[in-house]
C-alpha cells in the first residue's frame, strides 16, 4: 500500500518536474533584490546582462515580510542576493537562504551583497534592549536615501558583477562609468535645488528618513512612533504636539506603508502638511527610476517648505 503510493508520488513528481523545469537555461544573471531600489540599481549597472527581481514592492514594509514559498523559489535560482542588510531583513531573509540552499549566494560569496556593509551606517545604538522598541543593533538600515551611498554601492555592485560574470566585464564597467557620470550630475543638480531645505524642521513617522535628512541637512525634531516599530500612541502624539509647537515643524514625513492615521491627526492639529514620500522605486522600474525617486522627494519637500 505504502510502496504503491510512494511510487505514484514519484511518478507524479517527475511529471511535474518535466513540466515546470526551464527548457532552456537563460544566460543572464539572476539578481534577487530584497528591496526595489537595489533591483533598480542592478538594472542600471547590469543592463541587459542581468534580470533583477525585487522581493518587495514600494508599498510594502521590508521589515515585515513573510518567508513565502515564491521567494524560496526565487532565491533557489539566484546568482546574487542584493539587500540592505543591517538587520532590515533579519525576519525573513535568513529563512529564505536556508530553505533555498543556494551555494552561490551564501555569506562570503560575491553573490551575497549587503549594502550596509559598504557605506557608513548611522544611528548605531549604544544600548540595545527590546524595551526600546524594534531597534536595529547594527544601526539604521535605510541607507539608500543618501545619493552619495548609491554611487558607492554602484561601484561595489559592478565589481561583484564582474567577479561573477567576467565575460561581460566591459559592459558592466561601461554601464558603471555612464551611471557615475550621470549620477554626479544629478547630485550637483539636487544640491542646488535643495539649498533652501537646510535646517527645515520635520517630524517623521518612523526613522526611515535618517539618511535623507542627513544628506539634505533637514532637522528631525520628533518621531510619531515613541519607540521604533511600536505603533504611535495617543499620549505620545499629544506630548509631541506640545513639545514641537515652538520649533514650528514644516511637514510630517511617512512612507506609503506607514499607518496614515497618526500623521493625519498630527497634520490637522499642527496644521502642517502630512507628506507621503515615495520610499523607493516601483517594482520592475525602468532605468532612471532612481533619479525620479529623488526628484519626487525633493519637489515634495520644497513645496512643503514654502
Amino acid at each position: 500500500m505504502f510502496r504503491n503510493t510512494f511510487r505514484k508520488l514519484t511518478i507524479c513528481s517527475v511529471v511535474v518536474l518535466g513540466w515546470v523545469l526551464p527548457t532552456s537555461a537563460s544566460a543572464e544573471l539572476r539578481i534577487f533584490a530584497c528591496e526595489p531600489e537595489w533591483a533598480a540599481l542592478a538594472r542600471e549597472i547590469g543592463g541587459d546582462k542581468i534580470s533583477a527581481y525585487s522581493a518587495t514592492h514600494d508599498k510594502q514594509d521590508p521589515h515585515h515580510i513573510r518567508a513565502r514559498p515564491s521567494l524560496i523559489a526565487k532565491i533557489r535560482r539566484a546568482d546574487m542576493v542584493f539587500c540592505s542588510g543591517a538587520g532590515l531583513e533579519i525576519g525573513w531573509l535568513p529563512l529564505l537562504m536556508q530553505r533555498g540552499a543556494r551555494s552561490k549566494v551564501r555569506a562570503g560569496k560575491p553573490g551575497y551583497f549587503k549594502a550596509a556593509q559598504h557605506v557608513s551606517v548611522r544611528e548605531k545604538p549604544v544600548v540595545v534592549d527590546r524595551s526600546l522598541g524594534d531597534v536595529h543593533p547594527e544601526g539604521n538600515p535605510h541607507v539608500h536615501l543618501d545619493p552619495e551611498n548609491i554611487i558607492l554601492l554602484a561601484r561595489e555592485l559592478a565589481k561583484r558583477l564582474i567577479a561573477i560574470d567576467p565575460e561581460n566585464a566591459s559592459v558592466f564597467s561601461a554601464n558603471l562609468r555612464n551611471f557615475e557620470k550621470q549620477w554626479a550630475e544629478n547630485i550637483k543638480q539636487w544640491r542646488k535645488q535643495s539649498a533652501s531645505l537646510k535646517n527645515m524642521p520635520v517630524i517623521v513617522h518612523h526613522k526611515s528618513w535618517t539618511y535623507l535628512i542627513a544628506w539634505l541637512g533637514l532637522k528631525e525634531i520628533g518621531t510619531l512612533e515613541a519607540k521604533p516599530g511600536i505603533p504611535p500612541t495617543a499620549s505620545h502624539l499629544q506630548s509631541l504636539l506640545r513639545t514641537t509647537a515652538a520649533t514650528k515643524p514644516k511637514a510630517i514625513l511617512r512612507t506609503p506603508y506607514d499607518q496614515a492615521a497618526p500623521s493625519n491627526w498630527f497634520s490637522q492639529k499642527a496644521s502642517i502638511p502630512a507628506l507621503v514620500l515615495p520610499f523607493t522605486v516601483p517594482r520592475g522600474a525602468k532605468p532612471g527610476a532612481l533619479k525620479t525617486l529623488f526628484d519626487n522627494i525633493l519637489s515634495q519637500l520644497i513645496r512643503a517648505n514654502g
Binding site: V16, V20, I72, R76, R77, G100, A101
Partner: peptide
Amino acid sequence: YVVPSDMYIEL
C-alpha cells in the same frame, strides 16, 4: 530538495 523552477516545489 527545492526544485529550481519558477514555481516553488519542494520534495
